[in-house]
Design a protein around this nucleic acid. Structure first.
Lengths: 385, 385
DNA sequence: TGTTAGCACTCGTTATGTTGGAGTGCTAAC
DNA sequence: GTTAGCACTCCAACATAACGAGTGCTAACA
């Protein structure tokens, strides 16, 4: 069967109507909703065809039609093709100046939730590609060391190491030399367990201490793997806006899934995967298309963001299948843009401000410290209600 | 009206039965449920009295009775008096050895949720009473410093500071001396803004640098105030086990409250408050008794834990009013004990090997990792716009 | 050949009884 | 003081009916 323009229009009308009401939509509604000026009978015929083609279904006999995943997919694709080309101007972020990336992420995700009235998620940026800049051991006591690792992008990780044997300042000094010469400049991915064990051998007389230190560093690396990826969510209560998700069985599963953020990592992975395969921009997972079984009644829209210095993460919107895809994608796109530019996207650098912005590695800290959020100013959640 | 033993037994029976079923309980049920061997008619008379006294109510005429907050309160008090005296042996924590305090807290709260089938919360330990142990500035570049603050209990906070003017190693060294001599040994509460500003004056030629550094430290302190207190929750989906909380309006409010963890801080504060007033052990908030308006259909059971070194926090169980108070209090008490002993209750302090000591040390580091993100103000927050 | 009007039919929703049971309060008898 | 009995209330469950939305089909029409 062929998909002609009229069928297309009718399908669009059905979906759009269903997005608004959440109720199955009948032929009569469409007959007047569209500018096609067709009688309900004709529409019925077409709907019958569309059902046969798999774009819509009846929840039960003699009810209106609702879109299938396949129908949604077509709709989303058409949005991507048409509307998304003319990207609108970025609305500026209403993010208060904060000191911590963590707070910033929470605010972003909260803002997005209040803008869209959907549940939202964001993954903390992972910096697998970033290089080790500086390692320092300090002696806190005869058997206690402070280990600080600074990574490109000015990420700092610090641990305290308790030793079994005493250690003196001299040894600490030599260890510092060894660690910096061996490890700086390498990415966290480069510092694999193989390298670490070979370094342990080289360590000679202080093998034990080195071993402890390296184990700690290995912990740092391990802590940044996918399994431990930090994910923040917001607006979980929004699912109660949509009756089809709000019945207690489904809601419970969803809440549980959102709380157990580990499964959300699958969306981050999947998004990263797709992006690496050339698909770029906004990803849409409709129902079963997503990697998470318990979210098959939902659609998820995701995008990757890039803070620079290899710090990339994923931000997403989770809603019912009848979510307002267009708005969601628009909001997400804007948010992505804001994040991409946060720490000095090439065009967004402002030469004003006290900080030394020249060194690229500086950008993150400088921007954050000086509160030079791009376009801090107006920008309202659209359509609160 | 007097509260005699029989009334007491009947009230107990009513409450216990209601805890199990969630349904209003009638006189006939009680007549057989108890070992009083009274007819339903007699029970009815007594129930009528109990209602007059305010311990139970009828949800509607000719329904059974359900406990009021006052009734619950009496019941809880009786548990405290009788059962809780013989504290049972602590069941050992099924917590995997983890490197990060954060992970540990999440596991605790998850474990407690799965044990009780209620929603649970835990506040990250605050260390307001802890002393500064060690401050270190390291020079990363001509205008960039790494600032590490170690606090008693091996909490580490590190920030990167971007300066407006260049700084040399010599100055960094002198600054280190100044900071350590002035600040170590003081608690975070002692280091108030007054002290900081007086130090700024003393700084002399490097006033600007000192100012930057001290501002950063001030930020660290500020970041540890109540408003920023970290709270973890788990088992939010458990509210759907209890129909009286699961209708979409209430559930939505609750989910929203749990997500917006900031209001949960009120429970932490309240618990701390009560403890400082001599009340000790387990706190129970029934309905309105708690500080949070949106949780008036819930009861909350809380306890403080103490990891040692002044690191104290609060752990709590959130459930319906008909929660199994006895079990909740028991579980909470055990969990509290486990936490109190975790990092070496007096007896457990022996250094039995590096493994044991790892936990506390790294726990601190984890907290440090959180604060490791750049963005502690570099001093001159001229707002970019 | 495509479009439309009309009609019978289905099915979910809502409103309206109807009934049974659980529970109460009251009273009188033990 | 306790109990049995009775009338009454009210909820929950069920059945029934009315209604409306929507469909599929057929026949008529342009």
């Amino acid at each position: 069967m062929e998909m002609d323009g009229r069928k297309r229009k009718i399908l669009d009308a059905i979906i759009r109507n269903y997005l608004e009401t959440g109720e199955p939509v009948g032929s009569r509604t469409i007959s007047r909703y569209t500018d096609l000026h067709l009688s309900s009978a004709t529409i019925r015929n077409e709907m019958s065809d569309l059902e046969e083609m798999g774009f819509i279904v009846q929840p039960h006999t003699s009810a209106g039609r609702i879109p299938t995943d396949k129908g949604y997919r077509l709709y989303v694709n058409s949005i991507v093709e048409t509307k998304m080309q003319k990207t609108e101007a970025m609305t500026s972020l209403m993010i208060y100046r904060t000191n911590r990336l963590e707070e910033m992420l929470k605010q972003v995700v909260r803002l997005l939730a209040s803008m869209t009235n959907y549940t939202t998620m964001i993954s903390a940026p992972s910096y697998r590609g970033s290089k080790v800049k500086f390692i320092q051991l300090s002696r806190l006591g005869p058997r206690q060391l402070l280990n600080v690792v600074v990574i490109e992008g000015n990420i700092v990780r610090s641990h305290i190491i308790d030793l079994v044997t005493d250690i003196d300042e001299e040894t600490v000094y030599r260890l510092n030399m060894l660690l910096n010469s061996k490890l700086s400049g390498l990415t966290l991915m480069d510092i694999n367990l193989g390298l670490i064990s070979s370094m342990k051998e080289e360590a000679g007389s202080h093998a034990e201490v080195v071993s402890d230190v390296l184990d700690t560093i290995a912990d740092v690396i391990r802590a940044e793997t996918d399994e431990k990826m930090q994910i923040y969510t917001s607006g979980a209560d929004n699912i109660f806006r949509y009756p089809e998700l709000a019945d207690s069985t489904k809601a419970r599963k969803l809440i549980s899934t959102l709380e157990e953020k580990s499964v959300l990592v699958d969306f981050v992975k999947e998004t990263r995967e797709r992006e690496s395969q050339g698909e770029t921009g906004i990803q849409v997972y409709i129902g079963d298309e997503g990697p998470v079984e318990d979210m098959k009644d939902c659609s998820v829209v995701t995008a990757s963001y890039d803070l620079g210095d290899g710090l990339t993460g994923t931000i997403g919107i989770i809603g019912p299948k009848r979510m307002d895809y267009e708005k969601a994608m628009r909001n997400l796109k804007e948010m992505k843009k804001s994040l991409d530019n946060l720490f000095g996207g090439a065009s967004a650098r402002e030469p004003t401000g006290p900080g030394d912005r020249d060194a690229p590695a500086n950008a993150g800290a400088a921007a954050g410290a000086n509160g030079a959020w791009p376009g801090a100013g107006s920008g309202k959640p659209e359509d609160g209600k």
